[in-house]
Design a protein around this nucleic acid. Structure first.
Lengths: 174, 174
DNA sequence: ACGAGTTATTTGAACTCTCAACTTCCATCG
DNA sequence: CGATGGAAGTTGAGAGTTCAAATAACTCGT
């Protein structure tokens, strides 16, 4: 896609504002890194713990929650995934014995996802390996300044995509 | 997962080196941002162009290649995905009429993925919307310094996970 | 108490991805 | 040449994800 960006003109709906060469390089680096990293972590966890990275993340969220339990919707929002996806995921984790569902007394529609002892056990057993993988792939390679910068940048991007509170599924508006 | 990291001791295989609080915050921001962004782009492209983001990326790579064609393995490596995944993806893109396969004359095992005119057409038709989405979610929110920093960081991470050249599937060794 | 309009969650089908074979062909070496 | 090992690409089954639709229960206003 070679398009020249000759004139720094004002918003022209006719000709879109393409990415500059430098922006393209950044964007491609982003895509490469995230693709590789996601794959890397998925494999590591699938091999060692028998679950993909997202599922591991769900167990972590539950482990940190009071009484190791969260309402489905809260868990979904916290993990940034849709309720549907979570529903399927929990079904699988339930089959593995790492999570169980519990009814919500105050709202009969509601369900809690509860981390079982087995689930907790799997988590502690594989946390070291996972942390090691993350450190090796990311933190072990970045300077403290870069780490700080990465945090700031990712927070900005994440906030830009969140319905910033509000509760629907994931209708990032627009 | 509350573990205190009291002593900055030397490599102790007994107690793993957990992430510090600050590292955790960075890591979570990373997960949130990448999850949200991937989802956002997937939806945008699925809705507008009828394909997931990865597939769109494949078309872009082909569009940039000489004669709009690449060997399957090269394309897979370039997109950082496995050959198997690519094989399925190309099968689907072929069904949509955006890519076709061509035999390689010099190596009878080889296959080219070739971008069709239709494929090119879809690409140009939806590139503006995609670029706009990327700009809105990422570049539009970051300072020039942050963009530069992001590029450097992502390059480092990507390189750390690449078999750094070499040609196998994706056995990033260890 | 009734019904309209939400909210919580699930479901199933279609699609995508992974993993482990499997097929075919190339290359090298004796 | 013929065998052996590697490389290119595909395949099918199982697992995960998406999307739209369905179910059930809550909330209000009247």
């Amino acid at each position: 896609m070679e398009y020249m960006n000759t004139a720094p003109t004002s918003p022209d709906p006719g000709e879109p504002r393409w990415l500059t060469d430098e922006e393209q390089r950044v964007w491609r680096a982003y895509i490469d890194a995230t693709t590789l990293l996601e794959d890397h972590l998925d494999r590591q966890l699938q091999r060692d713990a028998g679950m993909p990275h997202v599922y591991y993340g769900l167990l972590v969220k539950l482990a940190e929650a009071p009484e190791r339990r969260l309402r489905m919707t809260e868990l979904a929002m916290s993990a940034k995934i849709t309720r549907s996806r979570l529903s399927h995921a929990v079904a699988r984790l339930e089959k593995s014995g790492w999570v169980r569902r519990a009814d919500c007394p105050s709202d009969k529609r509601g369900q809690f996802a509860v981390l079982t002892d087995e689930g907790m056990e799997v988590l502690s057993r594989h946390a070291p390996g996972h942390v090691e993988a993350v450190r090796q792939a990311v933190f072990g390679r970045l300077t403290p300044e870069q780490q700080k910068s990465l945090g700031e940048i990712m927070r900005i991007v994440a906030e830009g995509l969140q319905p910033s509170e509000a509760g629907a599924d994931l209708p990032w508006l627009r």
